[in-house]
């Protein structure tokens, strides 16, 4: 037998195959540590999972509202209460009237420009619900050698009023219409006039935007225009019947 005695820290070799107790102790300690670490990791994992399952959003019914920020102190005296009530009721009437005054009356038009729908309303009743075509959102760049202009073909959002309405409208083509077609921009205004393109009727909203007819009814329902709102012939006739100068047009 060769023993490591006398060689502290040196290699230990037991030829009889038995484990040296000095080596077995650290090994079992390491194993125990490993097991403890694994258990701790599992426990921590479970704890995190449990806490995570309780973290996020919990949904329920409508809770009672908290105190209103506009709540004012209530007077205790009956006469003061009466006065406060009268004041509040007067204000309530004024506010309700102001709210009603802002709502459109008579005929008015709504354009849903992303879904290409046009509605004609009378007060709150829907008189017409039709497909239309709004701005394509395309960007047109002038070719090299031009003025370097850039046009964005969006339909604007907001409230507009019909400024003019025209039967058999002529289109005075703007520069972009020539640029897009690869044609030279005419110097003479008369060369810009085109008939038939806008359909039977046009309603002018300002800044060159119109509601008008189209030669391409198959494209209705798609965003294809240069910012105007195109409507099919039959629907345009309904609009012509009811939409006057001053009729509000809400585009969203």
């Amino acid at each position: 037998m060769i023993d490591g005695d006398g060689f502290p820290g040196g290699p230990i070799l037991r030829l009889d195959g038995a484990e040296d107790p000095r080596e077995a102790r650290p090994r079992s300690r390491a194993a125990a540590l490993l097991i403890a670490a694994a258990i701790a990791a599992v426990v921590a994992g479970v704890a995190v999972a449990v806490l995570a399952s309780g973290t996020g959003y919990v949904y329920g019914g409508l809770p009672p509202a908290g105190a209103s920020e506009s709540a004012e102190p209530v007077p205790g005296e009956p006469s003061a209460q009466k006065k406060a009530l009268a004041k509040l009721r007067g204000e309530n009437r004024r506010l309700n009237a102001a709210l009603r005054a802002r709502a459109p009356r008579g005929y008015w038009v709504i354009v849903d420009q992303t879904q290409n729908r046009i509605y004609l309303k009378k007060d709150g009743e829907t008189v017409l619900d039709a497909r239309c075509s709004a701005g394509s959102g395309m960007i047109l760049k002038e070719p090299e050698g031009g003025k370097g202009r850039r046009w964005v073909f969006d339909t604007p959002r907001g409230v507009f009023k019909v400024r003019n309405r025209v039967s058999d409208p002529a289109w005075k083509k703007p520069d972009w219409a020539f640029v897009e077609e690869g044609k030279p921009i005419p110097r003479n205004d008369a060369d810009r006039i085109e008939y038939g393109t806008l359909g039977e009727y046009a309603f002018y909203l300002g800044d060159g935007y119109m509601i008008h007819g189209t030669l391409y009814e198959r494209l209705l329902g798609r965003s294809v225009t240069h910012g105007c709102i195109r409507v099919g012939r039959d629907d345009l006739r309904v609009l012509w019947k009811h939409v006057e100068i001053g009729t509000p047009v809400y585009i969203y």
Binding site: S136, G137, M138, I139, L140, K141, E142, P143, E144, G145, G146, V152, F178, V179, E180, G182, K183, P184, I185
Partner: peptide
């Protein structure tokens, strides 16, 4: 948004 460069003008 589709960005398109117009063709050069031709007569």
């Amino acid at each position: 948004r589709m960005e398109v460069e117009a063709p050069p003008p031709t007569s």
